[in-house]
């Protein structure tokens, strides 16, 4: 069977998630490989989520947020833009090609851009091949104890 990349996408609620929604509503075809997790802001994407995604078997991770200056929360995406380059260096140390991690800006009106980026990134990961990360089987699932919500 041909290699189908598993990609995790962290999409901000206001721009990218709406943009992805628009792509769907506009019937724009895009690769089905990106599995979307909605966060309120791209600034909510904890670096540990990305590492965890790679750990449990993602071949690529894409974080999408509002264009700079368009953030619904004023400056959340500026926090993200500082975190991702740092993470790229970090994942390199784990033996993960930094190209497997990407940060993109997609606004609520850019359904076509969303589809283009998704297709492009899927193709890139496909050409990079599966991520063969040596991970202890015990770690192949999320290990955080659920935090009690008060």
């Amino acid at each position: 069977m041909a290699f189908e990349p598993k990609i995790i996408g962290f999409l901000c609620n206001w721009c990218s998630y709406t943009g992805a929604d628009l792509a769907g509503v506009s019937r724009i075809k895009s690769a089905p490989n990106v599995r979307v997790i909605r966060t309120m802001c791209s600034g909510r994407v904890d670096p540990s989520f990305i590492l965890k995604a790679f750990q449990i078997g993602a071949d690529g991770v894409i974080v999408m947020g509002c264009h700079l200056g368009d953030c619904h929360y004023q400056e959340g995406n500026y926090k993200t833009i500082r975190r991702i380059p740092f993470l790229k260096r970090l994942v390199k140390g784990f033996g993960i090609d930094p190209r497997r991690l990407r940060l993109e800006w997609v606004s609520a009106s850019e359904g076509d851009r969303f589809a283009r980026i998704v297709n492009e990134f899927t193709e890139e990961i496909r050409s990079l091949g599966p991520l063969k990360l040596q991970v202890h089987t015990e770690l192949r699932k999320t290990i955080h104890e659920p935090v009690e919500v008060v």
Binding site: M40, C41, G43, R44, V45, D46, H72, Y73, R83
Partner: peptide, 8 residues
């Protein structure tokens, strides 16, 4: 407003 930047 619940953006979660602090949480991350």
């Amino acid at each position: 407003k619940g953006c979660g930047t602090c949480v991350a």
